[in-house]
């Protein structure tokens, strides 16, 4: 099976879009997944600690502060 065929088994690209509709809220499932992913990545970016955290001395900080 080709890669295209494999993806087609998981996601049917030949049908109409799945839609989530609750009152005024109307969005396609594809767009909703993207929005949820963005929120997840945003939260991860805030809460996951940055590797190789290096404390910079105060004179560099002051240099940035006065700009």
């Amino acid at each position: 099976m080709t890669v295209d065929g494999l993806i087609a088994v998981i996601i049917n690209l030949n049908s109409n879009s799945e839609i989530v509709h609750k009152g005024f809220f109307l969005v396609t499932v594809a767009n909703l997944i993207i929005v949820i992913l963005m929120v997840v990545v945003f939260l991860l970016a805030i809460f996951i600690p940055f590797p190789h955290h290096k404390i910079v001395n105060s004179d560099t900080k002051d240099e940035t502060e006065k700009t």
Binding site: L44, A45, I46, F50, H53, K54, I55, V56, T60, T64
Partner: peptide, 14 residues
């Protein structure tokens, strides 16, 4: 060549 310490966060990479 240097940045403030508070830049060491993933949110600053976007």
């Amino acid at each position: 060549s240097k940045q403030p310490a508070y830049m060491a966060s993933w949110i600053y990479t976007f």
